[in-house]
């Protein structure tokens, strides 16, 4: 079981890391653009992202399931019941959260920073980078929230991952399985491990911020 447990932890971390990474690559710039940009459809985009924050995980899982099932649009890729499909479902769930939280962080300094960047004739990519650098400490909270949601998610990943032993079983689906089997103490122990992982990630993140020199 020890070996399997480490495998489950490995799959959980892999899935959470990549889904958080992809969500942040998409969501951080989009959040900045939505908050500071001046273009048509900005409000609709913001509202849509806000609405999708409440997307039920099983619905996200169902959409990905339908897309990647044998007769789905992407069925030929054969991704259903793989970690990749789980990551895709997670990205669907987490990206709106990253967008909305980033927009909220940026809104505090957004207008003045935007004017400062434009005044210096910075390119769009340099401005975007500046927004992320300037708000990096607050944005770290966004990344941690995304990671937290990813690692704790069960509905979507069990639907598209299938909870297959040695393949797509993650901490949450394992807890669910052990609970259904009546092994409550083991399920609880798995839950503690999940919490411990979350704690380690949070501590590492706070050390990263604390470790930053005040004088560059």
């Amino acid at each position: 079981m020890d070996k399997e447990l480490f495998h489950i932890i490995g799959v959980t971390l892999r899935m959470s890391f990549f889904s958080t990474l992809i969500s942040c690559i998409i969501g951080l710039p989009l959040g900045v653009i939505i908050e500071t940009g001046r273009f048509r459809g900005r409000r609709i985009m913001k509202k849509t992202a806000g609405t999708l924050m409440g997307l039920p995980p099983v619905v996200a899982g169902l959409i990905v399931y339908m897309l990647f099932t044998k007769y789905g649009i992407f069925g030929s890729l054969g991704l259903l019941f793989t970690v990749e499909a789980m990551v895709i479902a997670q990205v669907m769930l987490i990206t709106p959260v990253v967008i909305c939280l980033t927009a909220s962080v940026v809104s505090v300094s957004g207008k003045n920073l935007s004017e400062t960047a434009k005044g210096l004739c910075l390119s769009k990519s340099r401005s975007l980078l500046l927004f992320i650098i300037t708000n990096r400490k607050a944005l770290l909270g966004t990344v941690l929230t995304a990671f937290g949601r990813s690692i704790a998610e069960v509905g979507a990943v069990s639907l598209v991952g299938g909870n297959i032993q040695w393949k797509t079983r993650v901490m949450t689906t394992a807890i669910l399985l052990e609970t259904n089997k009546g092994k409550f103490s083991f399920a609880l122990a798995l839950g503690m491990v999940l919490l411990l992982i979350s704690l380690v990630v949070n501590v590492l993140a706070s050390l990263l911020v604390k470790g930053e020199k005040t004088d560059d």
């Binding site: 920073l113 004017e115 400062t116 434009k118 005044g119 210096l120 300037t134 990096r136 004088d215 560059d216």
Partner: peptide, 16 residues
């Protein structure tokens, strides 16, 4: 031409 503008509420970047 190229315009540079220093706003009244200019923001200093969190770097050196």
């Amino acid at each position: 031409g190229r315009v540079l503008y220093m706003p009244q509420k200019t923001v200093l970047f969190d770097m050196s």
